[in-house]
Amino acid sequence: MPRRTATLLASTLLLIALLCAGVLIKVPYAEMSPGPTVNTLGKHDGDPVLNIKDEPGHKGEPKQYRASGHLNMTTVRVTGSEYRMNLVEAVSGWLRHDGVVVPHSTLYPDNKSAQQVDQENAEEFSASQESAKVAALKELKIPVSSHVVVSSVLKGGPAEKKLHGGDVVTAVDGKPVGEPESVAEVVTQHKPGQKTTFTVIPAAKAAASQKKGQEPSPKDAKKVTLTTEKAKDDGRAVVGIQPGAGHSFPFEIDIKLADIGGPSAGLMFALGIVDKLTPADLTGGKFVAGTGTIDDKGKVGEIGGIQMKTVAARAKGAKFFLTPAGNCPSAAKDKPGGLTLVKTTSIHNALDSLKKIRSGKTDQLTQCKPG
């Protein structure tokens, strides 16, 4: 066999061997890529994403308005928790413009199961919907009342099977509680092993009242006595719950969007609610997308995977992207062509930017700049 042919054959066999090894070798990485984007003003899988219900019995039934244009929330697609990339996939992901390869533990921490990660994402998504409703209605000067609820119950803790997620806490040891922090303040006055009494309105009865646009009724309250235990971190008395803020709305706002997790859609949900409840067409028919967490006061927070979301939005047709201020520097470094990144700090700030967009005063927008 000629030397040149032998060398070519050996090189080919070596390349094949390396490719096979690359396919077989698993690496501890996961990939993030652009996910679906959904118009909060439209429908998803045949149902309205935002459904504001004018049901009999509600206090002050809302007038709704038609909204044109787009206010798209954006997502990031990630590889599954059980999936293990091979070396070829990892290298390919590193070279791609529209994908990011990150350590597997970044998305799925070693100390948490896949079920725990999914549960946390679901809880964050639910909380973001609640905050979006509160922020939107407060921006519209529509009264929203607040109360303390049981956000979660620790498995194996004193409250398990006695308190449940969604229970409204009105008092602890007879002392009214108006903020989530107030619960811990009263409980920690005890020594571990001592009893404490919660006055709660069960979740089902509270939900039934809220569906009618009414406050949870004190007549539905019951007392639950718990024996405190010692916290593992600092030894204080605890009962194994996470208190949070719940709200009563003057009408029902239903957000339907399955298979989405995390808190990053909060801003776009809030803007969609405002658009449906005000005569002004917020986008003026323009295609606007965005992302960002939102709290009850309307403050917008940064999120992860910003580059993936801007790519997804532009591919869908967006011309403007509402970008949390904290994400601006990284988003502007690799901005898709034809997409204007609008720096956003709050729902009020976002509404001001939308006013400039629909009136054609886009030169007045505060755009993101590379850090």
Score class of each variant (00 low, 15 high):
57 G>F: 14
251 F>K: 10
328 C>R: 02
154 L>Q: 15
49 V>E: 05
12 T>P: 02
151 S>I: 02
199 T>C: 03
109 P>D: 07
62 P>G: 10
195 K>C: 10
58 H>A: 14
46 G>Q: 11
162 K>W: 01
218 P>W: 01
196 T>E: 00
93 G>E: 06
202 P>R: 01
174 G>K: 01
180 P>C: 12
286 K>I: 06
335 K>C: 08
263 P>Q: 08
141 K>D: 15
105 S>R: 14
113 S>Q: 09
208 A>R: 03
334 D>C: 08
144 V>N: 08
201 I>M: 07
310 T>Y: 00
331 A>F: 00
2 P>C: 02
182 S>G: 06
25 I>Y: 14
166 G>H: 04
240 G>C: 08
94 W>F: 15
232 K>W: 07
232 K>Q: 13
140 L>I: 04
327 N>I: 07
198 F>C: 05
166 G>M: 00
341 L>K: 06
352 D>R: 10
8 L>V: 12
336 P>Y: 00
216 P>R: 07
112 K>H: 07
102 V>G: 10
298 G>M: 03
1 M>F: 03
139 E>A: 12
210 Q>K: 15
109 P>L: 11
319 K>M: 06
136 A>V: 08
171 A>Y: 02
311 V>E: 09
292 G>V: 02
38 V>A: 06
289 A>H: 10
283 T>L: 10
233 D>M: 08
38 V>W: 01
99 G>I: 01
36 P>S: 14
94 W>K: 11
285 G>F: 13
252 E>Y: 00
113 S>H: 09
22 G>A: 01
15 L>P: 02
